[in-house]
Design a protein around this nucleic acid. Structure first.
Length: 258
DNA sequence: ATGGCTGAGCTACTCAGA
């Protein structure tokens, strides 16, 4: 089973790229972030024509997440954490993998910049609630898959120039500690688990030729609970979509489990 | 290089992203 996470930076502006990606890569499940649309304007038909069902948690203009899947996803929930600002950033569900019932969690963590503002506090509180509720969920089901745009640079090697980000909401120690806290509940950062020293990125700014210079960062992640590690076949950051015309600034990360 | 793009909403210009 191939599961993909991709911050598409507007599902409607990106639909041609997404359709072309699906035809090339044939994923079973897509976790989309930053769909930037209300539910009623989501391009359900485009996905339906390719054989996918869409589970959408959108909002006007900003944020928004969706799970797009060939098979039915059960127990869809949009209230994994309470969000003070009512932003659409998390959608969860359940899938079956052989004899395991897996809780799947698609997240779009707040950016948090600039620091020392309400935006940063919002990110910190969001992550705090997320860690608490993930811990609770893990007690009920030891098969958890979390993927999405974490807006967290886990380690110094996960960005082209760490010095530029050590006082940024993506790289601050306090934020990286929340990621570490999450792992310590009993998860692996699958990309790093399988690639100890590799330096690949999932995001490159639109400006200043960041893509061409490979000035990027690894902020989109797959976390698997330790109980599911035996099911991993591979993980891959697919850079092709970032090189296309009218790309998202993020590129898909692809997990194969069986 | 604290943004020199890009998108949404809307039709002039802000807000947001990371």
């Amino acid at each position: 089973m191939k599961i993909v996470s991709w911050n598409v930076n507007s599902v409607r502006a990106r639909i041609n790229n997404i359709v072309s990606y699906i035809k090339d890569e044939n994923p079973d499940i897509l976790f989309l972030q930053e769909i930037k649309t209300q539910d009623e304007n989501f391009p359900y038909e485009d996905f339906k024509n390719l054989g996918y069902k869409s589970y959408v948690f959108g909002q006007k203009s900003y944020n928004g997440v969706a799970i797009v899947s060939k098979s039915e996803v059960s127990n869809i929930d949009k209230k994994f954490i309470s969000d003070d600002l009512k932003q659409s950033r998390i959608i969860t569900g359940q899938i079956q993998l052989q004899n395991k019932k897996i809780e799947i969690i698609n997240i779009y963590v707040p950016n948090g910049n600039p620091i020392e503002t309400k935006k940063y506090d919002y990110k910190r509180n969001w992550l705090k609630k997320f860690v608490i509720n993930t811990k609770k969920k893990l007690l009920k089901n030891s098969n958890l898959l979390i993927a999405g745009d974490f807006n967290i640079i886990p380690e110094e090697k996960d960005v082209y120039d760490f010095k530029r980000y050590e006082n940024d909401a993506l790289g601050k120690l306090e934020i990286r500690k929340k990621f570490r806290e999450l792992l310590n509940l009993g998860f692996k950062d699958v990309y790093r688990f399988l690639n100890k020293d590799k330096e690949e990125y999932t995001f490159w700014d639109y400006f200043a030729g960041s893509w061409q210079k490979n000035y990027g960062m690894r902020i989109d992640h797959f976390l698997l609970s330790n109980n599911l590690l035996e099911n991993i076949s591979s993980i891959n950051i697919n850079k092709k979509p970032r090189s296309k015309v009218k790309p998202s600034d993020h590129t898909p990360i692809e997990l194969e489990i069986n």
